[in-house]
Nucleic acid binder design. Structure first.
Length: 470
DNA sequence: ATTTTGACGCT
DNA sequence: AGCGTCAA
């Protein structure tokens, strides 16, 4: 665990040095993955569609031609070239083609009668492996991660007793400065005496991020955007300020100016019902207006946890730590059966559970080899008449058959409780992982424990080779 | 015909 | 354990 400095327990608590927290977001990631697999798509307006023109039944391998320009499926990723034509995520193929006749539509691979996102997951894992070289790394989704690069930033601040140096690719680096957003050159030419400790740390962190993004670009060919700030809330907010292929620094002095005009729903976790409720109950729209509401009133209206939490959010404060976790906590796969295709018989449930279990078993198997872990719990989920239901059980084994039959048993349990049912979503998942890493010798254990001075001090050197396949 | 994932909080 | 919310 984390060594707790004794002074944390005393009454005199020095201010912790501000952290440098980064949110990295790949640009139109699925599109970039497809361009990497078919370089002839480079520079063209493209989109990735998730609808199989053959009714999702025929397998479409990653390696076979997957451009179906007559597809009317839903767009799940749109390249920046296509966005320039007004093509948007969630558009249908026909509407997108009206906006951009040259649009190239790439179909997601399919297997077992369903979409198979494996190529994107594996590409995302490659990116995470590079980002984790820079510090504490938390996988936030298939194409996003949080980093805590405080340690490396501190090391550089000590090393260059001098001052932050202009990052790599300064034209891809912005700063939210006193006059709004600007390029980073002026900010980095701040005179030595004028840097605050906090800004200096952000500047060194920004150099780390610029280097990491450069490595991702040269080793994998993917561009990404990033936000650099003092916590996850703000880093996430400013990673999206300038896309694609740009990183944005948010100094503390600019936090209020960024937040005040912002719509409440733009803050992470306030994009849904709670955010709506907050805006409606208070009769406000912006974060600045929220900041003006007394904490006592927020506490009265939204409770002893949520009230103070909103009060802090409105000030750009968040204590949510960056977790050290590069792997997902659960593996799941499922399929939607819309109106006409809804499942009405146990026979069909059994068939589709087998299909889905094939993919899940495959993914559990490769995860076990790569990450030396196995799930201890599985679950089945389904939707019926708009209601979502889930049941779970101990992992019965890792084979397709054991997963499928355990899933069927869980569904039978649910079916037995009702006279009529219709399944419109079917989902299998595995979670609660246990490590199966070979137990290291005592000598090896002490050796590696001694090397762990702290998190995020590895610099940008490649990590030790993975304990890969045997 | 907005799918297919994932994380997390509440109870 | 199961449900609901939020997000990309």
């Amino acid at each position: 665990g984390h060594p707790h400095p004794v002074w944390r327990m005393t009454s005199r608590v020095p201010a912790l040095p501000r952290a440098v927290v980064v949110h990295v977001d790949l640009d139109a990631f699925y599109c970039q993955v497809e361009v990497g697999r078919d370089p002839s798509l480079q520079g063209q307006p493209i989109a990735v569609v998730q609808y199989n023109p053959f009714g999702d039944l025929r397998t479409i391998l990653p390696s076979e031609p997957r451009i179906f320009n007559d597809s009317n499926g839903s767009l799940i990723a749109v390249s920046y070239e296509a966005r320039a034509f007004g093509v948007k995520r969630n558009m249908r193929g026909d509407e997108a083609r009206r906006q951009c006749p040259e649009l190239q539509l790439v179909q997601v691979p399919t297997a077992n009668g369903k979409a198979d996102l494996t190529i994107y997951r594996e590409a995302g894992a490659q990116v995470i492996d590079i980002l984790a070289r820079g510090g504490v790394c938390e996988r936030a989704s298939i194409d996003e991660a949080y980093l805590d690069v405080t340690e490396e930033a501190l090391r550089r601040a000590r090393r260059d007793h001098g001052r932050p140096v202009l990052p790599l690719n300064p034209e891809q680096c912005r700063v939210y400065g006193p006059d709004g957003v600007a390029g980073c050159e002026a900010w980095f030419s701040t005179p030595d005496w004028a840097w605050s400790d906090a800004d200096e740390l952000l500047a060194h962190g920004a150099a780390v991020v610029a280097e990491l993004r450069h490595v991702v670009q040269t080793e994998l060919g993917y561009s990404c955007s990033a936000g650099i700030a003092h916590n996850k809330l703000l880093a996430k907010l400013c990673s999206g300020l300038h896309k694609p292929q740009q990183q944005t620094i948010l100094p503390e002095s600019a936090v209020q100016r960024l937040l005040d005009p912002l719509m409440i729903a733009k803050l992470r976790s306030l994009g849904g019902k709670l955010g709506q409720q907050v805006a409606q109950v208070l009769g406000i729209e912006t974060v600045g207006q929220l900041r003006a509401v007394p904490e006592t009133r927020l506490r009265t209206l939204f409770g002893p946890e949520t009230g103070p939490w909103l009060h802090r959010m409105a000030r750009g404060q968040s204590s949510d730590r960056v977790q050290q976790r590069t792997l997902p906590k659960s593996l799941g796969c499922g399929k939607t059966f819309r109106a006409q295709n809804a499942i009405r018989t146990l026979q069909d449930v059994q068939y589709w559970l087998q299909q889905i279990a094939r993919e899940l078993a495959e993914r559990i198997g490769s995860d076990r080899e790569r990450n030396q872990r196995v799930p201890q719990t599985m679950g089945v989920g389904l939707s019926s008449h708009g209601d979502h239901v889930s049941r779970s059980c101990a992992m019965p084994g890792l084979s397709v058959e054991s997963i499928a039959s355990a899933g069927l048993a869980l569904v039978r349990r649910w079916v037995a409780e009702r006279a009529e049912w219709t399944v419109t979503d079917l989902y299998l998942s595995a979670c609660n992982f246990r490590s199966i890493a070979a137990c290291p010798s005592i000598a090896t254990f002490f050796q590696s424990a001694a090397g762990e001075g702290g998190q995020g001090t590895q610099g940008l050197a490649p990590p030790d080779p993975r304990p890969d396949s045997p």
